[in-house]
């Protein structure tokens, strides 16, 4: 089953950038509502890593929503007074909207981070610059290697009795010694890597960049749908405005704005649509067989 995240990284990256950008650059409560709902659903379906990130988001949401009415006293509809300061409905609604925007954007970015694994990032950079992508690839490898080596060295030092973590100073000294050994190891052995690169023709001329991902028709199609939905959303939402203070006046439900909402709605649940379609096809295929 080809899930949304198995599409070409360009498609996936473009999708999340569009969704994040539209969310971030609008203060339209309807759009933010859709965005928040869709991003949370997408996140639950894709990331599947427990309740912790949601709790963090909830706390952030509550704090951010509460801060605005406490420091901003504009607005006509006074709800109550706190220390002789008016708490207004307008400021409260603005606060909720702004908090929703931030949290929704955060969810989209989390999804983006999760989807853009190192090999996908490398693919994007490989298209941009083969040389930079090679350095990136090497650096990612070294990051892993250094982590493993750090452990080995500190174990070796311990077993030699050179690494004493009895008190803080000794522990820091021990760390510094491990770090020093690690740096020597990495730099000295790096030369072997460099020779291996030379031996295999690095620097003999222009490099190409081999890619596992292919940009197929369907990637193009999804990218196009994504672009079209974003365009419709941007055009449609251009007229939809909210004047917050002193009292809320909106032009949120013009026909052209409705079109914008539909556009953004399609954009925000695109992964769910694709995955559902694939799931149905699989069920159909397994029944047919």
């Amino acid at each position: 089953m080809r899930e949304f995240h198995e599409y070409n990284p360009i498609t996936v990256a473009a999708y999340y950038l569009c969704a994040t950008a539209v969310t971030m650059f609008t203060m339209n409560p309807v759009v933010i509502g859709i965005s928040l709902f869709a991003s949370v659903i997408n996140y639950i379906l894709y990331a599947k890593n427990g309740i912790k990130p949601h709790l963090f988001s909830l706390v952030l949401f509550v704090i951010m929503a509460a801060v605005n009415p406490l420091i901003n006293h504009n607005g006509m509809t006074v709800l109550f007074y706190l220390n002789d300061r008016p708490i207004t409905a307008e400021a409260a609604i603005y606060g909720v909207t702004a908090a929703g925007m931030t949290v929704a954007a955060l969810y989209w970015l989390r999804l983006f981070t999760k989807a853009m694994t190192s090999d996908k990032l490398l693919y994007l950079f490989g298209r941009l610059s083969p040389k930079i992508s090679l350095i990136l690839s090497m650096a990612i490898r070294y990051t892993e290697l250094l982590r493993i080596r750090w452990r080995k060295i500190s174990d070796a030092q311990k077993a030699l009795g050179l690494y004493d973590d009895g008190n803080l100073i000794d522990a820091l000294k021990g760390r510094a010694r491990v770090l020093s050994i690690l740096i020597t190891w990495a730099l000295e052995n790096g030369i072997i890597t460099a020779e291996s690169m030379d031996a295999r023709g690095y620097g003999t001329g222009r490099r190409t960049s081999f890619r596992l991902f292919r940009f197929r028709m369907r990637d193009g199609l999804i990218t196009a749908i994504c672009a079209a939905a974003t365009a419709i959303a941007v055009i449609g939402l251009n007229g939809a405005d909210v004047v917050w203070y002193p009292s809320i006046k909106t032009t949120l439900f013009e026909p052209v704005s409705i079109m914008g909402y539909v556009g953004f709605g399609v954009l925000s649940i695109l992964p769910i649509i694709i995955n559902t379609k694939e799931a149905i096809r699989w069920r159909y295929l397994s029944c047919a067989n």
Partner: peptide, 28 residues
């Protein structure tokens, strides 16, 4: 050469296999 670890250049097996040919500028 001798050391298995240090001769490897890239982070993924498939990329390592392609490395020489990339350097030689071969087509996809």
């Amino acid at each position: 050469a001798q050391s298995p670890e240090e001769q490897i250049v890239t982070d993924k097996v498939w990329h390592e296999l392609a490395f020489t040919l990339e350097n030689l500028g071969k087509k996809q």
